[in-house]
């Protein structure tokens, strides 16, 4: 038998699981993505990896740069504090020298 339609008129017809399998084999066929999509996605994945690498290096450079700036500022601040302490020291030394001479007079 070549064709047995199962429209309304032939209700109650039984089908075997092999027939269902045969239909599924013909219907669920492999589909291919377009070559453009495959190439584009490949490029994008490589780009993502490259970007990730670049981001890591950017972080390292920014981190090292920040450390250098902080160190430079700390050096300057330390020098200013030392200079201030020196000025205060000189001033108090002179004041201390002046006080005994007044007392002698």
């Amino acid at each position: 038998m070549a064709r047995r339609e199962f429209q309304g008129g032939v209700a109650g017809m039984a089908f075997s699981e092999e027939q269902i399998e045969g239909w599924l084999q013909r219907v669920l066929i492999p589909v291919e993505p377009s070559p453009q999509f495959v190439n584009r996605l490949r490029g994008r994945l490589v780009h993502v990896r490259g970007e990730r690498g670049a981001n890591l290096w950017t972080l390292v450079v920014v981190g090292v740069g920040l450390m250098l700036i902080v160190a430079a500022w700390m050096g300057l601040a330390l020098r200013l504090i030392l200079a201030l302490i020196g000025v205060i020291g000189v001033y108090s030394h002179r004041r201390a020298e002046r006080l005994p001479s007044r007392a002698a007079r």
Binding site: R3, E5, F6, Q7, G9, G12
Partner: peptide, 13 residues
Amino acid sequence: QAEGRGAGLEDRE
């Protein structure tokens, strides 16, 4: 088949 739908499904042995 009993409901009269599935007009396209046929046994094509």
